Computed example of a mutant assay.
Amino acid sequence: MQFLFGLLVRIVILGAGLVAAASIAVVLTVLLAFWLLRAAWARLTGRPVTPFVMRMGPRGAFEEMMRRAPARPASRTPRSDAAAGPRARLADVTDVDPK
């Protein structure tokens, strides 16, 4: 009895693995067909064929989050750098010795 139960469990696990592999293969086949159709359409219309690329950089993610952030309300207390007034811009660098 124990042998039959173990065999049944193995068959069920094997079947589940085969179903998972088949579903992944179907999804990849559909994506490949979509990409080939898109590439064929791009060639027919004279456009360059571009690959599916997801570009992600730390700077882009930071800028995206800063754009999404709500605007801060104006502070009722003055900031220390604003109290001194605008700083004059230096006309030339004076502490560098030319070589």
Rank of each mutant, 00 (worst) to 15 (best):
A33D: 03
P98W: 04
A33C: 04
L36I: 01
V53F: 00
F5M: 12
P86H: 12
W41V: 10
R67V: 07
G17C: 15
A40W: 10
I13W: 03
R55C: 03
T50S: 02
P58F: 01
L14Q: 09
A82W: 10
M56N: 13
V19E: 04
G60M: 08
A84Y: 13
S80E: 08
M66F: 13
I13G: 01
P70D: 12
V30H: 01
A88P: 05
P48Y: 00
R79C: 12
G17V: 06
L4C: 11
A69V: 08
A74Y: 02
S80I: 13
G15F: 01
V9N: 05
F5K: 15
F5H: 07
R79F: 06
L31N: 04
R76V: 10
V49L: 06
I24P: 00
L7E: 13
L28H: 11
P98S: 05
L4R: 14
I13P: 01
I13H: 02
F34W: 15
A22E: 02
V27F: 01
L8E: 09
A82V: 14
A21H: 05
S80Y: 02
W35S: 09
T77A: 11
R38Y: 06
V96A: 13
A91H: 09
D81G: 05
G57F: 05
V30N: 02
V30G: 00
V12Y: 08
V49D: 03
R67D: 15
R89T: 10
V53R: 07
R38E: 00
P86G: 07
A33K: 07
D92N: 13
R76D: 11
I11G: 07
R55W: 07
V27A: 02
V53H: 03
K99F: 12
A83R: 14
A40C: 03
A20N: 15
A21G: 12
V53G: 00
A40K: 09
S75T: 03
Q2F: 08
A88T: 11
R47D: 15
L14K: 04
P70H: 07
E63K: 15
T94L: 11
V49C: 09
R79G: 06
G15K: 02
P58W: 00
V12H: 06
F3Y: 14
P73H: 01
M56H: 08
V27R: 07
R47G: 04
L31P: 01
D97K: 02
A21D: 06
V93K: 04
S80G: 09
G57A: 09
M66V: 15
A25R: 08
M1C: 13
I24L: 15
M65S: 13
R87Q: 07
S23P: 01
R87G: 03
T94K: 08
V93F: 10
A40G: 06
P51T: 11
V26W: 08
V96I: 14
R72H: 12
I11R: 08
Q2M: 09
L31F: 02
P98R: 04
M54Y: 13
F52V: 12
F5R: 15
A61K: 03
L14I: 10
R72P: 04
L44V: 09
R87M: 06
A16N: 10
P86I: 01
A69C: 07
P48H: 05
D92T: 14
L7P: 01
I24G: 08
D81L: 10
D97L: 04
R59L: 12
A84R: 14
R68W: 11
T77S: 15
G46W: 00
E64C: 07
F62I: 11
W41H: 15
L37W: 01
D95A: 02
R72V: 11
E63I: 12
L32E: 02
A22Y: 00
